[in-house]
């Protein structure tokens, strides 16, 4: 089995502060993987590096064991098949819900292709499917700005799926959701995994437990522990980091 994502010895610092310090991690194809860690552990910077937003100072980042992700920008990583969801839901506020999905839909991302693009029946059907999946079909003509916080989270997940990515990087998807919504998100992510790889960064332990997957604990920019949630939460170092302060 080949790895989806491979990080080895990655370090990255800002003005002397080491946000990521000799980080190594492997995500297998189809794996569901949770990353936890206290604030400032380097979770977001790690995602920035994977998606080409930030260049690491040293270390290797490989996609499908062949593509060097350190040489690729955000758009490039998305075109490879990496989808990213932000901590704070970012949707296109002045576009309709439908258009949000439509421009995220997997297609040629070239300028002219986009200019002369005409929506096919198949694409229209796909959009409706996705809207139904995230339960926004009734709101498809509304401006995204008018959605509730939770609905924006869903819309963003819908956009992510519209990209048809091989790997989803999901940053705190449960933030701002009700308990029921949180559980539904967990179910959705679990159903996606297998077909696609999913990396979830999360604070909410209930949510991580519901995901029932492999967990990596980050601390001060490197991996502190790895294993099942029960395994890592029993480790004294982890307890120290989470509860000791």
């Amino acid at each position: 089995m080949t790895s989806q994502l491979y990080l080895s010895g990655v370090s990255c610092s800002f003005d002397g502060f080491k946000a990521i310090n000799n980080l190594s991690m492997v995500i297998q194809k189809g794996e569901l993987h949770a990353v936890i860690g206290p604030n400032g552990a380097g979770k977001t910077t790690m995602m920035d590096i994977i998606t080409g937003k930030t260049r690491p100072d040293e270390g290797e980042v490989f996609w499908n064991e062949t593509v060097d992700l350190t040489k690729i920008d955000e758009a490039g990583s998305a075109q490879l098949g990496i989808g990213r969801k932000f901590q704070k839901p970012t949707v296109f506020e002045t576009l309709t819900v439908e258009d949000n999905i439509a421009i995220a839909l997997k297609a040629d991302r070239g300028v002219l292709a986009t200019l002369f693009d005409r929506q096919t029946k198949k694409q229209a059907k796909k959009i409706t499917e996705l809207l139904e999946l995230v339960r926004l079909n009734d709101d498809r003509a509304r401006m995204a700005a008018d959605l509730s916080h939770g609905q924006k989270q869903w819309l963003e997940i819908g956009m992510l799926l519209a990209q048809d990515p091989e790997l989803l990087l999901v940053d705190e998807p449960a933030a701002g959701m009700t308990d029921a919504e949180t559980m539904r998100t967990a179910d959705l992510l679990k159903s996606i995994a297998g077909e696609r790889s999913v990396v979830v960064v999360e604070h909410d332990m209930e949510f991580v437990r519901a995901l029932n997957c492999k967990v990596t604990v980050l601390h001060q920019g490197s991996v502190l522990a790895e294993g099942t949630l029960d395994h890592v939460s029993a480790m004294p170092e982890v307890i120290e980091v989470y509860l000791g302060r």
Binding site: A75, S77, A78, T90, V91, F92, T94, L95, I103, T114
Partner: peptide, 23 residues
């Protein structure tokens, strides 16, 4: 056009547009 919508996307949330795969 779809390009026009992408432009609005750039106006609203430039980095989101990049992470969707548009240069």
């Amino acid at each position: 056009s779809k390009l026009g919508k992408v432009l609005v996307g750039v106006r609203d949330a430039e980095s989101r547009t990049r992470f969707i795969g548009y240069r």
